[in-house]
Simulated assay, not measured.
Amino acid sequence: MMLSIIVCHDQNRVIGYENKMPWHLPNDLKRVKTLTTGNTIVMGRKTYESLGKALPNRRNVVITRDESFKPNDADVIHSLEEINALEGHVYIFGGQNLYEQTIDMVEDMYVTVIENKYPGDAFFPEYTFEDFTVKSIEEGILDEKNLVPHHFMHLVRKEK
């Protein structure tokens, strides 16, 4: 099993506001689709509810303490240990609590950085380049649909 984080955050590590993304960036959504299609995404219940439904063409797993939570379009797990039993390439998909609990477990991170600052109430945990090597960095392309300056990074955990 390969465990990765996939996240989009602003310059202050904001990832959400009132259970929504504070920006609209189709380039990031397209990258998420490209990377996660055919794989597994793991998200907290609030992230799942903010999507409104499971994302197509990939396994959607919701982690929650609520034993009665049973969506009809996603699998449910109740502990971090159960993530390790998942097969294939598994992407941690948010939100804040799940990122905080798994950032030290992942092998790499696919990070979209919004080159701006937004109001937020959900944040990605702090990370440093002492822990990760920048494998690639790519400037985001701006056009009529993608108005927010951004770049994509692939960070790989350094060997300890």
Rank of each mutant, 00 (worst) to 15 (best):
M1Y: 08
M2Q: 15
I6A: 13
V7G: 08
V7L: 08
V7K: 01
H9F: 10
H9L: 11
H9T: 01
D10L: 02
N12I: 04
R13I: 07
I15F: 04
Y17H: 13
E18N: 15
N19A: 08
K20W: 02
K20T: 12
W23I: 01
W23C: 01
H24Y: 12
P26S: 05
P26Q: 06
N27Q: 11
N27G: 07
N27S: 13
L29K: 07
V32P: 04
T34G: 00
L35W: 09
T36C: 03
T37E: 14
V42W: 01
K46S: 10
K46A: 14
Y48S: 02
Y48A: 01
Y48N: 03
E49S: 13
E49C: 13
S50H: 06
L51C: 09
L55A: 04
N57K: 14
R59A: 00
I63R: 00
R65M: 09
R65Q: 14
S68M: 15
S68N: 15
K70S: 15
N72F: 12
A74C: 04
H78K: 09
S79K: 02
L80E: 10
E81H: 13
E81C: 07
I83W: 01
A85T: 12
A85F: 03
A85R: 00
L86R: 02
E87L: 13
G88M: 13
G88S: 12
Y91C: 03
G94H: 09
G95K: 03
G95R: 00
N97G: 15
Q101N: 08
T102Y: 09
D108Y: 07
M109K: 06
T112Q: 05
K117D: 14
P119D: 14
G120Q: 11
F123G: 10
F124I: 07
F124H: 01
P125V: 10
Y127K: 11
F129A: 10
E130D: 15
E130V: 11
F132H: 02
F132A: 09
T133M: 15
S136W: 11
I137T: 11
L142W: 09
D143C: 08
D143T: 11
D143S: 11
N146Q: 12
N146S: 03
V148R: 08
P149T: 14
H150I: 11
L155A: 06
V156N: 07
R157M: 06
K158H: 11
